[in-house]
Amino acid sequence: MSENATSSSSADPRVRLAYERTYLAFERTQMGWVRTALSFISFGFAIAKFFEWVREQHPANGPLLTPRAIGLLMIVCGLAALLLSELQHRRALKVIRKECPGLPPSLAGATAAFIAVLGILALLGVLLRQ
């Protein structure tokens, strides 16, 4: 009896639309995390590059925690947030795809991967530039 109830409820267009709305909510949440991570990465890169330029103009001994270190930390935090959000996003999509298999591929996941590559390049750019 439970198999018939499941079959009939999955054929209901309202149930399908509910799964699609949930899927889109997951996508919006992931894009929110991508924006947050991108902000961390770009602001960290800007801090590191700006204070590197200031140091070239006015060389002096700086404090223990330099602006470059803060910039690197922000880039790493952005990449970590992106990684953790992508893991959560994949786990959520795996659950919803079991119930509703015809959902499209995640564009938010592809965007997160692209931003992660840019973040890694920014991190390498700051690390390799002494």
Rank of each mutant, 00 (worst) to 15 (best):
L118M: 13
C100Q: 04
F40C: 04
S39C: 11
G71A: 08
L72D: 02
G109C: 12
A46M: 11
E56W: 03
E27D: 03
L82K: 05
T29Q: 11
I96T: 12
L124Y: 10
L65I: 15
N61G: 12
P104I: 08
L87W: 07
E52M: 11
L123C: 13
A122E: 07
V76E: 07
P59N: 06
I75N: 04
A48P: 06
L87K: 09
T111E: 11
L65W: 08
T22R: 06
T6D: 11
E52K: 09
T29M: 12
L118R: 08
H89S: 04
H89N: 05
A18P: 00
E56A: 14
A80N: 14
F26S: 03
E52S: 15
N4G: 13
Y19R: 15
W53M: 12
L93M: 15
S7C: 05
A5C: 03
V95T: 15
N61T: 14
S2C: 00
V117R: 01
P63I: 11
A18I: 03
P67N: 14
F43V: 10
L118P: 00
L103G: 07
L84W: 01
V117Y: 01
L79R: 02
M31D: 08
C77I: 07
E3F: 14
F50Y: 14
I115R: 10
L123N: 08
P59T: 09
E86C: 05
F26K: 02
P101L: 06
C77W: 01
T29F: 02
F50T: 13
H89L: 03
S2K: 00
Y19V: 15
A116E: 07
R129P: 00
A116N: 02
G44M: 02
G71V: 04
K49T: 12
A48N: 06
A122P: 12
I41F: 08
P101F: 02
C77F: 07
R21A: 04
A25P: 00
Q57N: 04
A92Y: 12
L128W: 04
R91H: 13
W53P: 00
L38T: 13
S8W: 03
A18H: 00
I75G: 05
W53C: 07
H58K: 14
P101G: 08
L123S: 07
F26E: 08
E20P: 07
E56L: 12
A81I: 09
V34W: 01
P105H: 11
A18M: 06
R97I: 11
K49W: 00
W53A: 15
A81F: 05
N4T: 15
V126Y: 04
I75M: 07
N61P: 11
I41D: 01
W53Q: 09
A5R: 14
T6K: 13
V117G: 06
F40W: 10
V95F: 09
S106Q: 03
R68V: 15
V126P: 02
Y19L: 13
F40S: 03
Q57D: 08
L83C: 07
F51Q: 15
S2I: 02
T36V: 12
D12L: 09
V54N: 06
K94P: 00
